[in-house]
Each structure stands twice: as C-alpha cells, then as structure tokens.
Amino acid sequence: MSDGLSAQLLNLCCGLFLLTAVGVLWRRQVSSLITLLTVQGLMLTGIATLLAAQHRNAEAVGIAIGIGALKAAIIPWMLRRVHNQVPDARETRPLVNVSASLLAAAGLTLLAYAAARPLVALAPSASAHATPVGIAVVLLGFFLAATRQRAISQIIGVLLIDNGIAAVAFLATGGVPLIVELGVSADLALAVLVLQILTSRLHETFGPTDLDELRELHD
C-alpha cells in the first residue's frame, strides 16, 4: 500500500469516526445507536490497523485485531442483549433537543481542536494531526452521558468516551503498551457487563423509567 493511499484511508477513518459520534447525538432509536457504535468500532480498528501497517509493527497489528473484536463485535453484542432485556428504551425526552445537540457537537469539536494543540504540536507523526478527532469524540460522549435520560444512552456515552480516548492513544502515540491495552480492554468489557446487569436490575426495580426518576437517594 502506498503512503499516500494509506494516509487518505486514515483520514477517511478519522472522518467517519467523528461522524458516527455526531450521528449518535442525532438518532434516538436505540438499535440505530448500537449500529452507529459498531461502525465507530470498525473505524477505530481501521485507524489502529493502518497505523500498525505504517509502523510495520506485528504487536500493533495484534492489538488492532483485538480492539476490533472487542469494540465492533463483543460490546455491540452485549448492548443488543441489554436492548432486548429492556425494550422500549427509545430516548423520549432528552434534556437537550436534537438540533441544539448538533450545534453543541459543532462547538465541542472546535473546543477539541483548541484543547488538543499541545498533543498535535508535540507528536512527530502526521497522524497526530488527527488527534483532535479523538478528543472531540470524548467530549461528545460526555455531552451524551450528561443530557440523556435512558440507562442505555448513558452506557453508550461512556463507550463513546472510551472510543475517543483509544483514538487519541493510537493517533498521538501509536497505541499504549500491550499489557496496558489488555488491562484497559478487560476493564472496559467487565464494566459494560456490570452496567448491563445493573440496567436489567434498574428495569426490575424501577420499571421502564427515566434515570431522572432515580430519586431514592438525596440530601
């Protein structure tokens, strides 16, 4: 693969990576949110694979395959199970409506470019110039987790944050060391499992309500 083609593919993956995050803010149907998250996982895998190929690093290729399996297969599968257990989880009344969310997304992306300057300035590789995309996805994840009312939307917010950080790690540094990546991935998979179980318990104890209804504990 020529360097030019590889760079173009990388740009394409980064673009789609950001676009899927914005799409998550735009859509309300849970099944389409999960599809978007799967696509985002694939794009992250693409980024990891392209960078591994550029650096000709076998270990990095292994990490990329593992990331792909986790983020594009296992986690979406777990989310679909949550969705089956808790049907009718459509986001009915987010705190911020869709058009305002999209405006916020544009603002957050600009903010990400400002915040990522020290990272871009420092890293030697051309791929580092795409790191703001990762930061933008992190910020969009925060926004989603803060403004949505359904349990599953909050899980997706947490996953967006995680995908964003993973993208920053790949683009700015070529990926964190293997053992750290293993630990982080295991933690993530277990955290989603815990959230899946808690979601069904929430559904059992509170019924199909918004998280706004969680008012047992307060001061």
Partner: peptide, 11 residues
C-alpha cells in the same frame, strides 16, 4: 436505593 447507588457509582 442500592441499585440506584450502584448505577450512579459505576457511571
């Protein structure tokens, strides 16, 4: 109460 606490804690 404890399910609520666990959810807030994990998220």
């Amino acid at each position: 109460a404890s399910v609520e606490a666990a959810w807030k804690y994990v998220v």
